[in-house]
Amino acid sequence: MPTVQLLILPLAATYEMKNISLSVIDNDHSTYAQQLINKFTASGYFKLTDYSASYKEALHQVEKNNADIILQIPANFEKTLIRENKASLSLNVNAINGSTAGLAASYAGIIIKNFNAEIREKILQTPAANMQPVIDITYSNWYNPDLNYKKFMVPGILVMLLSLVGGFLAALNIVSEKEKGTIEQINVTPVKKTTFIISKIIPFWIIGMIIFTVGLIICKLVYNITPVGSYITLYAFAAIYMLAFLGFGLLISTYSDNQRQAMFVAFFFMLIFILLSGEFTPITSMPQWAQVVAKLNPLSYFVAVMRLVMLKGSSFTDVSSYFLTICGFGALFNTWAILNYRKTSG
């Protein structure tokens, strides 16, 4: 199951846009207009889904969810462009999904800019004379040069899977013994509380490490992501993180009376932990209170470490403060769970 999730989730959690539905209102029907439309469709990001005669009609298509973006080419677009050396276009973006809209608009902007440059070269046969000095900004993207969103997302999703498996399995475990009644039999034995909790952690810890290994193999084979940093650092973190998160699950289990209760409590925390992990949105751009919550979130540390080590190649000493924090979480959750597990009721 975690394997399948690792294969499917990154495809869904994409920040790259493809197949943006484009609706065109071409009031000009000129060669230039046609060229512009071709440029849009040729980019690979846009898909021409609709030709509308009027803005109203196009808007209707947006309402029906058939179009995400409307490109309106005014009448006499070509003529004005040649005669007055400038022309206007109108672009309307459906911004229900803010990030999609932003990306669509910026893609469209780039396409129009390119188109503009090409046209100018054609119209003005003497480009050099008229060219104004342009400051050209070049970007260089470090650590993920081709801005591959998968490189960014997959390590984080791997963390999420470890947390889901570890958290839920552990949360349901002791509580299921409470339901079956076997915990009673254990409680009348002289077994030590610490021994009991450790015996609960070990099998899940092994499962977690297997999942982590399978996940890294998938990273390599399917997404072609090889950690820049060392595997030893990654495993050291995964090992400690798993202990910490299992402790958290067992803690929920010791507080719950039945599996439904444990499930809901675990789900509640998981949702918060995942949303505030920094996987989907950067923690630094969250409101102040959310940043405080993120500091208390073990996931956020492991997501950060995974990215640092896998993409940036940080060494163990670079991330040792994270390591200590996760150790702290582990000690806290497990001690709490041991203390809260009672062999004798009041």
């Binding site: 079956k180 009644g181 076997t182 009673e184 039999q185 009348v188 034995t189 002289p190």
Partner: peptide, 14 residues
């Protein structure tokens, strides 16, 4: 607990 054995009403082996 070290000196006793217990068998509960509810069957409670694994």
């Amino acid at each position: 607990k070290k000196s006793i054995g217990y068998m509960s009403q509810k069957f409670s082996l694994y």
